[in-house]
């Protein structure tokens, strides 16, 4: 058995989600290789070689891999897949875009967002927004899998000393081209790997009021998230969305402020260790999953909380 992990990276650093996928790979067993496909990406390849548990890094460096376009990355994954029993990637927007394309080219039924490895052929994955957990068994010759990052600890980023091997690039498919990106920049920790997350919902009323949450977040070293309603209303950008169809988070502490607790939101945060809900409606479903519920007007409670954290 040998597992290939398709790394997510920005050509210089390995994205934390890759480390969770490496842990899933080690649980499957056998040698773990990491594919770094990028452009000017030597630093990323070297970083991948240091991940604990990785025995080999395949490094494909070419202009066509600069922006992770699925049409270019998938054929590379397909070309390498025959040497492996499993091909994994984190279930991030990158992995979700690339892996099904590779799976179809390999004539394999992908297993999306696994949350546990039962054995080399059998995996658990959430369905119906996490309201059910399915145990599925694959008999495909290569298993193509995306990994729910919150379900696996991060592998140590240091400690490994894998060899870096060059892999042949496969050329530009010529189907898509990268135009540009508008990335949210923040000094705060990244949402999916933060230890504390504080999220706001429709109850926040506008984007300006999110400053209250940011103030608390900065005192706690937390990331800021949101419900779909807050994103749809334009209070905060799309990448704040936590939930079934947004990001899945499982921090030590999740604070939901002015969020009702719709099933689609719970799907993205109910595996958090400690959940706090602040909502003025004591019937709000969020209280059914909250370890600590505070029935209060958020416009009083949040400034008070911020003050209390100074003391």
């Amino acid at each position: 058995m040998s597992v290939l992990v398709v790394a997510e990276h920005d050509n210089s650093e390995i994205a934390p989600a890759t480390l969770n996928a490496v842990t899933a790979a080690t649980q499957i067993g056998g040698d773990v290789a990491v594919l770094v496909a990028g452009s000017g990406s030597s630093a990323a390849a070297e970083a991948a070689a240091k991940i604990a548990g990785v025995s080999k890094v395949l490094h494909a460096d070419a202009a066509e891999y600069a922006n992770g376009l699925a049409e270019n990355v998938a054929p590379l994954v397909v070309a390498l897949a025959s040497g492996y029993s499993h091909v994994l990637a984190p279930a991030t927007s990158f992995g979700k875009n690339v892996m099904p394309r590779a799976a179809a080219m390999l004539d394999v039924q992908q297993i999306s967002e696994i949350s546990a490895v039962v054995d080399a052929d059998t995996f658990v994955r959430p369905i119906y927004a996490g309201n059910a957990m399915a145990t599925v068994k694959s008999s495909d010759s290569v298993k193509v899998i995306t990994v729910r990052t919150t379900a696996f600890d991060a592998a140590a980023a240091e400690g490994g000393s894998a060899a870096v091997e060059a892999a042949d690039a496969k050329g530009d498919a010529g189907l898509t081209s990268y135009v540009g990106a508008e990335l949210s920049s923040s000094e705060r920790p990244e949402l999916t790997s933060a230890k504390i997350v504080i999220s706001g919902g429709r109850g926040m009323q506008n984007g300006e009021n999110f400053k209250m949450l940011e103030e608390v977040a900065d005192k706690l070293g937390a990331a800021v998230g949101a419900s779909r309603a807050a994103v749809d209303a334009g209070f905060v950008p799309n990448d704040y969305q936590v939930g079934q169809t947004g990001k899945v988070v499982a921090p030590e502490l999740y604070v939901a402020v002015g969020i009702s607790g719709a099933i689609q939101h719970l799907a993205g945060m109910k595996d958090s260790k400690v959940i706090v809900a602040i909502n003025k409606d004591e019937e709000a479903p969020i209280f059914q999953v909250a370890d600590y519920g505070l029935v209060a007007d958020l416009f009083e409670a949040v400034p008070e909380l911020s003050k209390a954290l100074d003391g």
Partner: peptide, 21 residues
């Protein structure tokens, strides 16, 4: 894929309400 079983997810323990901040 063969679905071996479909189960309920682990339930969270009921929490408490706090009186104030």
């Amino acid at each position: 894929l063969q679905t071996l079983k479909v189960e309920e997810p682990a339930k969270r323990e009921a929490g408490v309400k706090v009186a104030d901040v």
